[in-house]
């Protein structure tokens, strides 16, 4: 129980957050963080714990988002049905993919996930009669306030973390880690590695699809380049996992917070600081600097990953655990 006190206290803070911070901008950022907690947890399950690195989480995220969007757009149902069905449709995509591609190991599997990402993006772009192609799907958001979205996102994030915690302390968890550590050894102690890799992938796809359908409901607009984006979704999912701590339950939560903050700092040019500087100095150099820094967030992601791998190979959470143990 002692181990749960910290997270519980933190949960209380998160529950109180939208009541204390009224600025919708910060509420928006926190909704994104919570959404990324779910995606990061999913990625961590298949890549961090089971060792099958995925470069294609956007395939599941986009499937969840399009499930919600199309339910509203084509069938006139509430997009909220997507919360239930988005994850399931993501699993429907993941299942045949895993069935075929888990014959591949290591980098080859990772490449297959990358291909799945691209296949899904192109399908969504080309199949205009179903997905409206590049026009995208626009739905009416249910709430004007961000607070309901915040609590739904919080619920999804908490469910993700708890499910990962429960799974990882069960038989499945031991099997997942065994497969990561040595697939041949795992097979020789009676673990059906193909089956358990499928279980892990489907759980991961479900969480990611769930986050996708939340995104559709919250943002109200999607198109293939947004939700099937390689660098904004798939790579971001990897970063959330790696920065937070690969193979730790709470790693993705920390990673989500850091990554959303970092990308936001760059996207907004230091929360508008650079623009103010530019206006104050009026120097043309600052105009250029501002422009480049705003566009450099993907580059910064790369530098951040190098930094984390060099100095914190177990991520923020894993590294902290280790340093605590050694004292």
């Amino acid at each position: 129980m002692k181990n749960h006190l910290g997270p519980l206290a933190f949960l209380l803070v998160l529950i109180a957050f939208p009541l204390a911070v009224r600025d919708p901008y910060y509420q928006h950022l926190m909704i994104l963080v919570l959404m990324w907690v779910a995606i990061g947890s999913g990625w961590n399950l298949i890549a961090g714990f089971t060792g099958q690195v995925s470069f294609g989480d956007a395939a599941f995220f986009g499937t969840g988002a399009y499930t919600a969007g199309l339910l509203a757009h084509k069938l006139g149902m509430s997009a909220w049905w997507g919360l239930g069905l988005g994850g399931i449709f993501a699993v429907i995509i993941a299942f045949p993919f895993g069935w075929i591609c888990f014959r591949l190991r290591g980098a080859y599997f990772a490449l297959a996930t990358l291909a799945l990402n691209e296949v899904m993006r192109h399908t969504a772009t080309i199949w205009e009669s179903l997905t409206e192609g590049m026009v995208g799907i626009l739905i009416m958001q249910t709430f004007v306030s961000k607070i309901p979205y915040y609590y739904i996102a919080l619920a999804i994030a908490v469910v993700s973390l708890i499910s990962v915690q429960v799974v990882m302390s069960s038989r499945w968890g031991y099997y997942f880690v065994s497969i990561r550590e040595d697939q041949d050894a795992a097979e020789s102690i009676g673990i059906d590695t193909h089956y358990y890799k499928m279980v892990s992938l489907c759980l991961a796809a479900y969480l990611t699809g769930l986050a996708g359908s939340l995104y559709m409901n919250y943002m109200g607009f999607i198109d293939p380049t947004i939700v099937f984006s390689l660098h904004d979704i798939s790579i971001m999912a990897i970063l959330v996992g790696i920065v937070g701590g690969v193979g730790t339950v709470y790693g993705p939560a920390v990673g989500a917070f850091i990554m959303v903050a970092v990308s936001e700092v760059f996207r907004t040019g230091g929360f508008g600081l650079l623009e103010k500087l530019t206006a104050a100095t009026g120097s043309p150099v600052m105009v250029l600097v501002t422009k480049y820094i705003k566009e450099a967030h993907v580059l910064t992601f790369g530098l951040l990953v190098i930094f984390v791998i060099l100095f914190l190979p177990n991520g923020v959470v894993g590294g902290w655990r280790k340093s605590r143990r050694s004292h």
């Binding site: 038989r171 031991y174 099997y175 880690v177 065994s178 550590e181 040595d182 041949d184 050894a185 795992a186 102690i189 009676g190 673990i191 193979g247």
Partner: peptide
């Protein structure tokens, strides 16, 4: 030898004891 390196000895054995 193929130990499950990042697991403890007991967890290694536990992973196979589940069978």
């Amino acid at each position: 030898v193929k130990p499950l390196k990042r697991m403890t000895v007991l967890d290694n054995v536990l992973a196979s004891a589940f069978l």
